[in-house]
Amino acid sequence: MAEHIIRLQGVTKEFDTKGGKVVALKDINLDIERGDSYGIIGLSGAGKSTLVRTINLLEQPTEGKVIFNGSTLTGLGNKDLNLHRRRISMIFQQFNLLMQRDAIGNILFPLEIAGVPKAEALEKAQELLKVVDLEDRAHSYPSQLSGGQKQRIAIARALASDPEVILCDEATSALDPKTTRSILALLRKINEERGITLVVITHEMDVIKQLCNKVAVIEYGEIVERGEVSEIFKKPKTKAARKLFFPDGQSHEKPLTKTSTRNRVRLVFDEATAGEPIIANMIMEVGAPVNFLYANLDVLGGSQKGQMVICLAADRQTAEKQKEYLTAKGVEFIEIDEDETFGEEAEK
């Protein structure tokens, strides 16, 4: 049995505002296993930040329990809570570095808090600067560093206390695509090589694809779907998950046509099925053409996955045959509802 490092049980969070009560989280149950890189994705205002902030009790849940490493954190006094908090690091969209301390001073900060002897702390901070590739910037102040460099320092700071978990709240949302990739690669390496559990909050599917093995989709304060990223990528069940995984309006690839919304299916290829010209064979075998609407290639947790949206034959019998062929070949596909939109249509 894998060990649950973080468990949320029946967590509800309400905010009292002038406009009345805002329910940010509704009865959240979530188990995260040690070593997971667990993504939490949802649209703006879905409650992602609130959720991650309840894990280290920056946000006190209105109801429910937060369990870390078998200890219940909810209800603990400040002193005990602070001891647990040292095992859970956090990185932020805005980096939140101390502006009056240089890079190494920032990395030393959590060690000072924990009362680590100076010499030992300094040695560790220097080593961590190497881990994040910024040995030469030890005495630069945050105002002298780029966004990516600041996040690297924040990551080194997060590692300083030898945490078991790192919570990442939109850690790459303030960075350009290239810097984002390098930060995600660094986090991935930390997860894989050090076995540190990651909880990754994001509104970008790409972050989940590059970094996470599991994902929960959150909508209006509720987790509507969860599981292995590769499974949900293949067969998203809920509308919310489909919206996130299907090609969307932001994508630069446009669907080739929007003539028909009937008989559309979305296929997912992986390394096992990508070698064969399955669609071409299907067209020959069934003797009916298909219409290509969309195709792209993704890297999911290190392995390549292709997705394609095609429009099958208009008459039901032929379409059935085409589906049977796909099933026989082991290609995962799901049918797209007529009212579901993607690509250009989704922008409206």
Partner: peptide, 17 residues
Amino acid sequence: DPGVIEAAQAMGASNMQ
């Protein structure tokens, strides 16, 4: 910056610290 204060809280800093 309140974010920096929050970062310190997340690290387990006491109020005095």
